[in-house]
Design a protein around this nucleic acid. Structure first.
Lengths: 335, 335
DNA sequence: CTGTTTTGTCGAATCGGTTCGAGTAACGTG
DNA sequence: CACGTTACTCGAACCGATTCGACAAAACAG
């Protein structure tokens, strides 16, 4: 079933069918109705490839996620779901590409095959080869997180520096004097992953400003790692009374380690940080934390990308979010 | 940059360029080299839409996941990641469609716009509108899980009936006399979700066969729900000494409830079931359970789909997996 | 040296849409 | 009634690939 067949059945030309469906030119009421009826009966929908070829756009966006092997964190997962849902609202389809490094085949297929009108990059690095590639190919893109050159490109991000600093000040205000940052894995820091780097920067600056006894450690994205990390940390520095974290995957393990060490939360020990709301609520007791506004980030990213696709020459737009700290039950003055 | 431009630069016709790249007809060594060099310099890659139109296939598969709003479980997430990776290995792209019900726009776009060569359905119901739709449109598809009519269609599934029965027998062999099944949410059971229904069937049959005191309950896919579910369960039936579950999301909550109730695992209480390996290992103590072989399922599904696309008329193939119970540390004879 | 293959290349048709320019018929106006 | 508009519709060109049949040149056989 194609447009020619519809045209034949309705007794009109192919162009008239096209105009009747798109509304881009006037079509008399009677023919329009006849065409729509034929279309309905046949269950006709234009072939996406043909339409993409003719229109020069695919009505599809690419979503680049970390490569397989690396497990997605719950926040990333939520982001994917949110982006797909937001795209659906704009009648956009989503092509998934797991690519991190330089020469990823699916990324290359997507970009040089012009399979998509635009791309959303997740887990972007401060210097990111994929962003460079997209810019060179002149393909609109929006990143979740930003590169070293913050002014270049469109992005949606959290102000990790300020958020983590806010957590530090919050603990300091409660009276804590020795606190630790449990960061994402070391290799993320090394490769210039924004949240890890800027979070650390915020932690260092704020602890210095308040003259706190500060310790920053990295921790693999694993429950187990969280457990051993906190165990080691408190063994080495028993004076620590509070933790700030942005490693949500490690949270359950941290909870377990604190319980094992008899560090009741929040009576004897405080925990806070920046994590997805859902995971903050599953902590025991519920975590006082800045909640990552996942679906807002997804919505804004798709929105920005859609604008960008519509007006590729428009100036870059940025969205920097600073969600408030949600007071729950994991923080208190030190004993 | 298109094939015509490449042809012009290499001083040959467009068809020769096409043949040189596809190898579908012989091209002399010298021209082939010249063409490849031009292609390399220009960084040319055929336009995917044009190619799809001409070839009649898109080299893309659709992946249908539960609609946004419903949170993906870790196993589903792993499945998505696994499928994308497996597809990438076959040079296939993946279009994501969040659709569950009848009239999902992205699903409709994908199917009637012929955007994909085939589809993988996840979280399929015993009677599934999407499967019916695909069959009607003559689009190859493979489902993860199967419909009521098991012989129809290609699918990859776990033998939940046997797996859960195996868990029951295992507990019975250890000496447990009163055990419970913690299933997926009630609405899954009502809507005919295979794992929930067949798991329950296996539980009922096996407990009857061993004349056990059996209780089956449903539990929302939430950590909290797991906690209250187990709390209620043991309040009502304190004689229960073991749980079989296929609700991995509820596991952390179940762990918490058992600890709160002083039911040490495995000394006083046993837990087992069918869950993703990763989540079995994160249970405390590590869960003795049949591990859902996520990446194997993903691989087999993509493999089956690729075969199906290549030979649409071939007979339906099924893959029913029965992973062994991995002995870890959460089961022991009752006190 | 002629006739037949084989080899390599080309032009044209095709896939299924969109869009532009032009043409026709009906209409309103002076 | 002639004329300029307006309202519809059509045919043809185009998007960028693939693929088929044809053809010329080279290679080979008799």
């Amino acid at each position: 079933m194609n447009i020619g067949e519809i045209a034949r059945r309705a007794g009109v030309s192919r162009s008239t069918v096209s105009y009747a469906l798109s509304g881009k030119r006037a079509v008399s009421e009677t023919t329009r109705r006849r065409i729509l009826q034929v279309v309905d009966e046949a269950g006709y929908r234009p072939n996406a490839s043909a339409r993409a070829l003719a229109e020069g756009r695919t009505r599809t966006i690419g979503l680049v996620i970390p490569p397989a092997g690396r497990r997605l964190t719950p926040v990333q997962l939520g982001l994917v779901a949110g982006i797909v849902a937001a795209a659906d609202r704009q009648e956009l389809d989503v092509l998934l590409s797991p690519s991190g490094g330089e020469h990823d085949r699916s990324f290359e297929r997507m970009v040089s095959g012009r399979r998509v009108d635009g791309v959303i990059l997740t887990e972007i690095r401060l210097r990111d080869a994929r962003a460079v590639r997209l810019r060179r190919s002149n393909i609109p893109f929006v990143s979740i997180g930003h590169t070293a050159d913050a002014d270049a490109g469109c992005w949606v991000d959290l102000d990790y520096e300020r958020l983590i600093a806010g957590c530090v000040h919050y603990l300091a205000d409660l009276g804590h004097r020795a606190i630790a940052l449990v960061n994402r894995p070391q290799e993320f820091l090394d490769s210039g992953y924004g949240p890890a780097c800027r979070g650390l920067a915020g932690f260092s600056a704020a602890t210095a400003a308040r003259s706190l006894d500060a310790t920053a450690v990295c921790c693999a994205d694993e429950t187990m790692a969280g457990e051993s990390c906190v165990g080691d940390l408190l063994a080495a520095r028993p004076e620590i009374t509070g933790i700030v974290t942005l490693n949500e995957v490690a949270l359950p393990g941290m909870e377990r380690a604190l319980r094992r060490l008899g560090q009741a939360v929040p009576e004897r020990f405080s925990v806070t940080g920046v994590v997805g709301r859902h995971w903050a609520e599953e902590f025991h007791p519920p975590l006082t934390a800045a909640d990552v506004p996942i679906s807002e980030m997804a919505d804004r990213a798709v929105e920005l990308l859609a604008e960008r696709i519509a007006a590729p020459a428009a100036p870059d737009r940025h969205v920097l979010l600073t969600p408030p700290i949600s007071l729950r039950a994991s923080t208190a003055p030190p004993p």
